[in-house]
Design a binder for these strands. Structure first.
Length: 546
RNA sequence: UGUCCCAUAGUAUAACGGUAGUACGACAGACUCUGACUCUGUUUGUCGAGGUUCGAAUCCUCGUGGGACAACCA
């Protein structure tokens, strides 16, 4: 039985490199910028990079791309590390681009010495103007012909803090008429008198991404540097620096980033959701962040499975969020203990059950492990779901209705005898009679009922706050809408005051399946008062027809 | 009027010149003390036109469509 999974294009490249002896071992890296929280899109990259190294016996470095001190912070470093570990991965080394500032500086000097870099005194505006447009070539300026000596002196003075922010930059001297805009003498060093989260005030010049990333890969001997599609036009530059600097030839490969329906993924938009209070924070369970998904009840393996299933390719994609939900259901169905909870309670009174009596009934906690059982309290007064009763049942209605019989899960068969409504027409109380001989596990009634409903003993229940989360956006692809904020789902969070079986061992992070209603996870804020977050619903098989 | 990337069921992703397959979704049925799970079945696809070839989703050309690139961001 060979379960042969086809290779993605990166795996094909790696296998060919290994086969041809281009590399003996592969090295990958995950290079986040510590300026935000990781999201499910990053998870795709993490699973790819770490997964490749594991599959082919290589290693993966965690490298923080911290070349812009004004946006970066250790707060993000910590959360990123936590999320990667939570996902189940261990990095071989923890590095920072800032570890290489001295080396990078030397690289820049060597470029100057080769006549391949120059100091430009122009303003940012002038440089942008001279760069041309994608369809018109750029123009060079008077600084392009400065002597090597002058460039050396100026660059040294930049480092020494002799100039203010924006007064000068170091540029690579390539080709102002190149059809690829990134090759039109890109800026490689800029002056920023800013405090860096790691190097403090040691530097006032910082390398740009293009002058840091590839070289960092090279310094670490990264064999396969995997990034997203938007870096394709940077690749010629990536290769140019490595070639001119004559350093280890790392290679860049690009794959399509993850997009998901009913979700936004860009840091900018996610930041807006947080800052404008549409969600409670970066770890709000509606956020596609790793911390949000974790709080919502997603497990590391369900996220890994998801990343595995979506594949890796180069075409733009929009993955249906139902695939993510499928992955977590598939796992939780096996691992989450069942428990009964009633989210929209209505009282059910069993008229022929002794009001002074109560009993404990056995019920299974895992349907596929019949030996895993627990006892649930039962009496003449129960909570059941409002939605399990219909005054005038539709066709194919298996649940409760006047005169209808139904099985109370793990208890008795009951027959609805009457009900009460309030002035608003809302059902407030349902009366039923039960069949004593229909007790679950010892059913001698000979009756067959179509429906089974869940319940909680009203005389012995605990209350809980249950947070029902739904997709954050009603639009399938909010990112392409004019104003994505207008497409926020007003019902993305509905809070219920529910009843749950007494004695449920609900520690923060614990997963449960509320029988017939979905998967839930105990929130981190849960304490005296239990708080549950809905991870996802059960697949809905009942679809009423007109 | 540039350069680059991409194009296979609704959504993703395989098929590496030789029978277009898989997953999710949808639909139908079986089972069911969760209308869940499980099982069975159905549905829908190679962007277009040429060319090469015994044979093209695959190679070539030209279209068409989508995307990326003009931060002292990454």
């Amino acid at each position: 039985m060979t379960e042969e999974k086809s290779l993605n294009f990166i795996e094909e490249i790696i296998e060919e490199d290994l086969r041809n002896g281009v590399h003996q071992k592969i090295k990958t890296r995950f290079p986040p910028e510590p300026n935000g929280y990781l999201h499910i899109g990053h998870a795709k990259s993490i699973v790819l990079n770490f997964g490749l190294a594991i599959k082919y016996g290589g290693t993966t470095n965690l490298r923080f791309d911290d070349t812009n001190p004004v946006t970066e912070d250790t707060e993000y470093v910590d959360s990123i590390k936590e999320d990667i570990q939570w996902l189940g991965y261990t990095w071989a080394n923890e590095y920072y681009a800032s570890d290489y500032f001295e080396t990078l500086y030397d690289y820049a000097v060597s470029l100057i010495n080769k006549g391949l870099a120059y100091v430009d005194d122009s303003s940012a505006e002038k440089i942008a103007a001279e760069k041309g447009t994608p369809t018109t070539p750029g123009q060079s300026n008077e600084y392009r012909n400065r002597s090597i000596e002058e460039n050396l002196t100026l660059f040294k003075e930049m480092r020494e803090g002799k100039y203010r922010d924006g007064e000068k930059v170091l540029r690579a001297k390539i080709d102002m008429a190149a059809p690829n805009m990134h090759m039109r003498d890109p800026v490689i060093y800029r002056i920023k008198h800013a405090h860096h989260h790691r190097t403090g005030d040691k530097w006032c010049i910082y390398p740009m991404y293009d002058f840091a990333h590839g070289q960092s890969d090279s310094i670490e001997n990264i064999t396969h540097s995997i990034c997203t599609l938007e870096f394709i036009p940077h690749r010629p530059l990536y290769d140019w620096f490595i070639e001119k600097l004559e350093i280890f030839p790392s290679h860049q490969y690009e794959f399509a980033r993850l997009n998901m329906t009913h979700t936004v993924m860009s840091k900018r938009r996610l930041m807006q959701l947080v800052n404008q209070g549409f969600v409670s924070g970066w770890d709000d369970p509606r956020m596609p962040t790793i911390s949000g998904l974790r709080r919502k009840g997603y497990t590391p393996s369900s996220i890994r499975t998801f990343c595995d299933k979506i594949g890796v390719a180069k075409r733009d994609n929009l993955i249906d969020i139902s695939l993510l939900e499928f992955c977590v259901r598939e796992e939780l169905n096996q691992t989450a203990p069942r428990v009964m909870a009633v989210l929209d309670p209505v009282k059910l009174i069993i008229d022929n059950y002794d009001p002074d009596k109560s009993e404990y009934l056995e019920t299974e906690s895992f349907p596929n492990q019949p030996e895993m059982v627990r006892k649930v309290s039962f009496s003449n007064t129960l909570w059941i779901e409002q939605s399990d009763f219909m005054e005038e049942p539709m066709k194919k209605w298996f649940r409760l209705a006047p005169g209808a019989t139904v099985r109370l899960k793990s208890a008795y068969i009951i027959k609805c005898e009457s009900f009460k409504k309030n002035a608003d027409g809302q059902v407030t109380e349902i009366h039923a009679t039960y069949l004593p001989e229909s007790k679950s596990g010892a059913d001698h009634s000979g009756m067959k009922v179509k429906g089974t409903i869940h319940w909680v003993d009203a005389k012995n229940a605990q209350s809980a706050e249950v947070r029902l989360y739904d997709r954050l956006f009603t639009s399938e692809n909010p990112a392409i809408e004019e104003n994505f904020l207008e497409h926020i789902n007003p019902d993305s969070l509905v809070v219920k005051q529910a009843y749950i079986e007494n004695g449920t061992a609900a520690k923060p992070g614990a997963h449960f399946q509320f029988v017939r209603t979905g998967y839930f996870c105990v929130d981190k804020d849960s304490g005296e008062k239990l708080i549950f977050n809905r991870t996802t619903t059960l697949k809905e098989g009942f679809k009423p027809k007109e």
